[in-house]
Every structure is written in C-alpha cells, then in structure tokens.
Simulated assay, not measured.
Amino acid sequence: MTSDQRTQQRYSVLAVASSAGGIKGLGTLLSALGTELRVPVLIVQHLDRKHRSYIAEVLARRSLLPVKLAQHREPVEAGTVYVAPPDHHLLVGSDGRLSLTSTDLVHFVRPSADLLFESVAAAYGDQALVCVLTGTGVDGAKGVDTVKAYGGTVIVQDPLTAEFKGMPDAAVATGAADFVLPLEDIAATIRGLVDTKRQ
C-alpha cells in the first residue's frame, strides 16, 4: 500500500485475535468479508505449539481472500490474510513488513494478541482496526487499550454470543471497544469502516 493510499483511506490494516472456538469464528468472519477488502488482515489464533498447524489451509477453505502463514520480513498486501505460525509472535512495522519472533510467552501464549495489537497501533496509529473474537483468557485486552490510545478502532465479539467469552469479556472491560457485536454482524461493520474515506 502506497503512502498516498494510506492518506486517503480511513483504515490501513485489520488485526484479529481469537483463541478457543476461534477457528470456527474466524471462518465465519473471513467468509463474509468478501473478495475486495482494501486492507491486509493479520490474524493471531492461539494454537498448540507442539504440532504443525494447518490453520491457513483450513481458513482458506472458508475465506474469499487469499490466506497464508505469515513469513518473517514479508511486506503486507491489501486483500491478503496473514496468519501467525504456531509458537511465533506476529508483529508489523511502520514499513509494512511483518516480523516473527520467539520471545517470551505473553499471558502464557505465543503468538500474542497483545503484541500484535500494540505493533499495529504503533505502525498505523488511528488507521488501525482491530477485532477480538471468542477465546479464553485475557490476551488482547492490553492491546486494545493501546490501539484506542493511538486513535484506532476496536471491535469485540459480543461475549454473550461467543463460544468462549474470556477474551471478549476482558476486551470489553477495558472500555476501549467501539463496537460490541454478534459474530454475524462483524464482517459487514468491518467492510463499512474500511470503505470509509478519511475526513
């Protein structure tokens, strides 16, 4: 994405985090995002660190957008979904390139939603859009606070509709959520936000 495009668009990136129940939730979200989303999508899904993951292949079956495991130092492209590999934190820099690290676990997990969201906030500021879906634990709560502090926008799955409400509950409790929505309504909201021009 060029700097001119980033100047025109209200949002320049979408970051999504999920844990327990997340494969189903992500599939529902991705299948409804359409084929022409004008931002890259970065996903952290908590996975068993000991096993090879087929998450990209599984999600690709539901997604109308191309899905791939993120690679270290690759540049992000609009309309592509990048999934954190098992046992690696996923971050993005201000140069639009991804980083994979094996630094310490955060809230007992790696990859960490908090680290992804914090990197997105620092790189994209008020052009960051993040979403917390179903999951156990509190990962993502600190990150959405950071995104909000940088002027970004936070969407959280309504805990009452989440298969596991720990992560959504923790995110809502921060007070940083701009939208708290049933899973089925999130994709349409994202599309509407991404299609909005900067004022």
Rank of each mutant, 00 (worst) to 15 (best):
T2S: 06
D4I: 14
D4V: 10
Q5D: 13
R6T: 13
T7V: 14
S12E: 08
L14R: 13
S18H: 02
A20C: 05
S31M: 06
G34K: 08
G34F: 08
T35W: 03
E36G: 07
L37D: 06
R38A: 13
P40W: 06
I43M: 14
I43V: 15
I43F: 07
L47Y: 01
L47V: 02
D48C: 09
K50S: 15
R52N: 14
E57Q: 08
V58I: 01
L64T: 10
K68M: 11
Q71A: 00
H72V: 02
R73Q: 15
R73S: 05
P75Q: 06
P75T: 10
A78H: 13
T80L: 15
Y82P: 05
Y82W: 03
V83K: 09
P85A: 04
H88G: 09
L90F: 03
L90A: 01
S94V: 15
D95S: 15
D95V: 10
G96K: 05
L98M: 15
S99R: 12
S102C: 14
V106D: 13
H107I: 04
V109M: 01
V109W: 04
R110M: 12
P111N: 10
S112Y: 14
S112L: 11
L115Q: 14
F117C: 02
A121V: 02
A123L: 10
G125C: 09
G135A: 13
G135P: 11
G137R: 08
V138C: 07
D145T: 11
D145M: 10
T153G: 06
V154Q: 02
V156C: 12
E163N: 10
F164H: 08
A171C: 04
A173E: 02
L181K: 02
E184I: 09
I186N: 12
A187R: 11
A187T: 03
T189N: 11
T189L: 00
L193T: 05
L193H: 06
D195M: 03
Q199C: 04
